[in-house]
Each structure stands twice: as structure tokens, then as C-alpha cells.
Amino acid sequence: MNRSRLAANAVAVAAAAVTLFPIYWMVLSAVKPAGEIQSLQARPWTLAPTLEHFRRVLGAENFGRYFLNSAAVALSVVVLSAVVAFLAAFAVTRFRFRFRTSVLIMFLVAQMVPVEALTIPLFFLVRDLGGVVPGVGLNTLGSLVLVHLAFSLPFAIWMMRGFVAAVPEAIEEAAMIDGASRAVILWRIIFPLVAPGLVATGVFSFITAWNDFIFARTFIISATHNQTLPAALLVFFKPDENDWGGIMAASTLMTVPVLVFFIAVQRRLVAGLGGAVKD
């Protein structure tokens, strides 16, 4: 028993080390002096850590602007997706209406469409939409929010169904009898109860929106001030010599918000994912 425990611990720690290594390498390369990165003997440590790459990234490349763009898009998607998915999941779980099954199947199938396939139609769609509705056309952050929102919904609704279903209907009935209005029941009673699910789906939509590369490249063509971080990283790839120090420093900076967001919700995340699939 004890020996197998020990072995399990050892394996777990080894797996953790393998996982951690590339991340360690990223931070390490970000603080290594330029000369050391290029040297052939790559050493897994550095004796002269430097912030030169960070300074270059933050100073020259309009990094702050891109950072705020990415944050604005990702946070809008998280908030909107939580509200829209919650309402939809509530309706399809608690209420049987015509075409309900069709609607559920549509959510599921929508999940399977390869993103690359939709890029071209979406480009034309966003272009034309921009002519009708201001603020969501090409070169706008609004277009990114809308498209990411739509892509996050099938999974979010699917996850939220399990959570809404787990809330006993008796709670709603009791609240009704106590004279609570529908809005109060929905937002003050049920919404908090499904919070773990919202956290789990929120992490998903945040990560997808924050990491997105394809849509940002496709929709933001000329308005460079509306560019987001992943696409902006390309600046450091040069035809002759990639600026690895810059790439790694920018990557580290790009990872920090995800980490903060994630550490804030880690405990709830595991519970959240588990609750979505009731066995």
C-alpha cells in the first residue's frame, strides 16, 4: 500500500515535471540575454537574467493596446456567453416546447463544424454585416466578440443543461409560493446555484477567445490598432532571424492573464466539469 502510494507520487511528480518543462523554458528564454539564446549549448538555466526582452516588447510594439483589445474581447465573450447560455439552457431543460429536440440536436451538430471551413463564409458575412450594423463589421472588435460568442455557445449550453437539471424544481416552486417574481427566481436563486457550471464554461470561452488566431487574422485586416495579441506575436517572426527572446517574453506576458483567471477559478473548475455530466 505505502510502496504503491510512493510510486504513484513519484510518477505524478515526474509527469508534472514533464508538463512544466516547456513552460519553464518559455520563462527562461524570456529572461535570457540574447547572446545566450543563440548559443548552441542550450543550458537549462541562466546566470544573467535580464528584462531586456520584456522592455522591448512593452515599449516598441504597441503591446499594451493589443493586450487591452484581447482582454476586452475575451471578457465580453465570457459575460455574454454566460448569460445567453444560461437562459437557453434553462429554457431547454425546464420547458418542453415544439422543436425542442431539434434545437438540442442543432446545438450538438454546431459543435462539430470545423472552424477552418467557416472562415471564408464568415469573412463575407462579417463584411456584409458591417454595412448594416455599425460596430460589427471587418476591422472591429465587435465582430470578434460576436463570432466567438456564437462559437462558445453550443458547448456552454450543453454544459449548463446538466447544472440547471441538477437544481431541484421544488426550489423554484417554493420560491413561487413565497411570492418571488420570475426574475428574482431566475437571477437571484437559480443563477447562483449553477455558478460552478458558469465558471467551467467561462474558462472555456475565455481561453478560446483569448487564444484565437484565425478570426483575428481574417477579420482585422487594416485596422492594426484593433489587432489582438496572438496575431500581434507574428511581429517577432522575421524572415532572417526569429526574435526568440521577444517571442518568449511576449508569450509569457500573454500567458499571465490566463493564469490569473485560471488560478482564481481552479477549485471551482474541477467541480464544474464534473457536474456537467451526471452519471
Binding site: 508538463t19 513552460i23 487564444n211 506575436l233 490566463v258 493564469l259
Partner: peptide, 12 residues
């Protein structure tokens, strides 16, 4: 750590 490798940006 396992989660970390999942949440890191793909380009990174």
C-alpha cells in the same frame, strides 16, 4: 500543471 498545459495560448 496538467491544466496549465491546456490553458496556455496555442500559438505560445
Amino acid at each position: 500543471l496538467v491544466l496549465l498545459s491546456w490553458i496556455l495560448p496555442s500559438s505560445v
